[in-house]
């Protein structure tokens, strides 16, 4: 929003700000996001405790993208009430080989068994891990329609046509309390939106920020959840 205001106040004519706002408003396609929370136990976190966010990668069909996991972690660590989030790769490397796709605990009961190993519980204590958040999900692109054709000739080039597609993000976060070795809740985020690409000489992408919205909404809800809000 700040960027829009800055860009428009630079224009001297009165008509330009209105055009500018209209154009930029049109450039962002709509996204709808739904968040569901299921709480199984009370939560809370102290200043010296940390959270680690891990992507589930056991499925044959898809893997939770590392950049989505990082996005959620970065967002949870931001702001005055930001949590201390341990980077996924640092945690997985330090606790190798216990959190690899083939060996990671699938249920909170498995965590209890894992924590029974002195070397594992010692590493967890060093990091100050209070909560492990397992992220599972993906973004799928469906309903691709339209076509754009581009040509280049001696006098120049250009594109003409129209394309659209739908992005659907579906992610689930399962939160485990390391201190009690139990699952304390699940938060799911579903976001979808339609993106458009009209092309008149130049393709103009009107992208729905589906995955980014799912990331932001899920991270904000997770932060509230572990803080006990």
């Amino acid at each position: 929003m700040n960027t829009i205001r800055t860009g428009c106040t630079l224009a001297h004519s009165r008509i330009w700000p209105a055009l500018c706002v209209l154009l930029l408003a049109g450039l962002s396609a709509c996204t709808s996001t739904t968040i569901d929370e299921f709480r199984q136990a009370e939560t809370g976190i102290s200043n010296d405790e940390t959270v680690v966010i891990l992507g589930r990668r056991q499925g044959a069909g898809y893997e939770t993208a590392a950049d989505f996991v990082q996005c959620v972690g970065d967002r949870m660590g931001r702001g005055r009430d930001g949590l201390s989030v341990v980077p996924e790769q640092q945690f997985v490397d330090a606790l190798f080989p216990w959190f690899e796709p083939r060996t990671a605990p699938l249920r909170s009961d498995d965590l209890q068994q894992l924590m029974a190993q002195p070397m594992v519980s010692e590493k967890m204590s060093q990091f100050g891990i209070r909560y492990i958040v397992w992220l599972d999900g993906q973004t799928e692109t469906t309903n691709r329609m339209g076509s754009i054709s581009c040509t280049v000739g001696p006098g120049g080039g250009g594109c003409f046509g129209f394309g659209s597609w739908e992005d659907d993000s579906s992610f689930e976060a399962r939160i485990w309390d390391v201190s009690s070795h139990t699952a304390v809740g699940t938060i799911s985020a579903d976001a979808n939106g339609q993106s458009y690409m009209p092309a008149v000489f130049v393709p103009i992408p009107l992208l729905a920020r589906v995955e980014a919205n799912a990331c932001n909404s899920l991270a904000d809800q997770l932060k509230l959840f572990v803080q006990g809000g």
Binding site: F96, P97, E100, P101, T103
Partner: peptide, 10 residues
Amino acid sequence: LRDLASNFSI
């Protein structure tokens, strides 16, 4: 190879 290392060591 990382998969091998994790499975082998466990």
